[in-house]
């Protein structure tokens, strides 16, 4: 069994430990990589996902990492954990890393409307797989929008909650979230 030896540096991989026997002396992160904040490494139970397009399975969550194998489009994998733009997955006997955007979680197969990754994340967050969709409950349905009369008093309430720039900046600073210069993407899909 091939297992990518790279695991998250953050000590949040409790769920992972349950499903993977970690090799002793897991590699340290590359010095150039900033340590991942604990919150960005999301342990997940074995949720299924499908590969959107043919994609290389990497030994580590980096584009220039060694390729373990090439997964064909629609291959099924088990999600082990997420780190940044990458998901650690198991494909059959092989484990490795795929880009997050190359995966779609398995389609809903039941009427409960809550499965797979959502449930896995709920479990990771709260320890319970609650949070199911309230099937059949009507609220903001097509009918309700079609029959709605404008509610100007609620509109006024919405205006009262509006933030000003100073508060928004203080909110960001408290996180702390800092502005970064990022250019927009080219519309290569249209």
């Amino acid at each position: 069994m091939v297992i990518a030896r790279k695991v998250a540096s953050a000590g949040t991989a409790a769920a992972l430990l349950l499903v993977l026997a970690l090799p002793a002396g897991a590699k340290k992160p590359k010095p150039t990589e900033p340590a991942a904040p604990a919150a960005t490494a999301t342990p997940a139970t074995q949720a299924s996902a499908q590969v959107i397009r043919e994609t290389p399975l990497k030994t580590e969550p980096f584009a220039d990492a060694e390729t373990v194998s090439a997964l064909p489009a629609n291959a099924m994998v088990q999600i082990l954990m997420r780190q940044g733009a990458w998901m650690q997955v198991r494909a059959g006997e092989t484990a490795g890393w795929l880009r997050l955007l190359s995966l779609r979680t398995a389609a809903a197969s039941t009427a409960t409307g809550d499965s797979g990754l959502t449930q896995a994340i709920n479990v990771a967050r709260s320890g319970a797989s609650g949070n199911t969709v309230a099937t059949g409950v009507r609220g903001l349905s097509k009918e309700q929008i079609a029959n709605a009369a404008p509610n100007t008093s609620e509109l006024a309430r919405m205006g009262q909650s509006a933030a000003d720039e100073a508060h928004a900046r203080a909110f960001a600073a408290a996180a702390p979230a800092a502005s970064v210069d990022v250019p927009f993407l080219e519309p290569r899909d249209n």
Partner: peptide, 28 residues
């Protein structure tokens, strides 16, 4: 740009995909 992990929206889309399209709460 706002200092967040940009893959928040894709993760939401991955969750939405697991929901049943016929469920009235997400049909619209």
């Amino acid at each position: 740009r706002s200092g967040y992990d940009p893959f928040g929206l894709p993760r939401v889309l991955q969750k939405l995909e697991t929901l049943n399209a016929r469920d009235s709460s997400i049909a619209l």
